[in-house]
């Protein structure tokens, strides 16, 4: 039984121009209660935070604690 991938639009959006993951910041990843954020490499070699797992309680520590205001928490589409 192979697994399929189901696409979903994710609620947490990171502005990679503002994200300072390159400088070692992992604040949003650390504070998330559901542990759904990760740091990833971009095509230009810089790093950014992103939402890896669509398992969001839209509680907002990631947005509130981000030192550069790079994170926005939207309401998941299913309940928007």
């Amino acid at each position: 039984m192979p697994l399929a991938h189901a696409a979903s639009t994710v609620p947490v959006v990171v502005n990679d121009d503002l994200c300072i993951a390159d400088k070692g910041c992992t604040v949003c990843v650390e504070v998330c209660p559901l542990d759904v954020l990760r740091i990833t490499d971009m095509l230009d070699g810089r790093k950014t935070a992103h939402m890896k797992y669509d398992e969001c309680w839209y509680c907002m520590p990631c947005e509130a604690d981000c030192p550069t205001g790079a994170v926005t928490v939207n309401i998941p589409y299913l309940l928007k």
């Binding site: 559901l34 309680w57 998941p76 299913l78 309940l79």
Partner: peptide
């Protein structure tokens, strides 16, 4: 809503 994590309680 059917969203697994849209619970009243913190979903963790």
């Amino acid at each position: 809503s059917g969203y697994l994590y849209g619970t009243y309680e913190n979903a963790s």
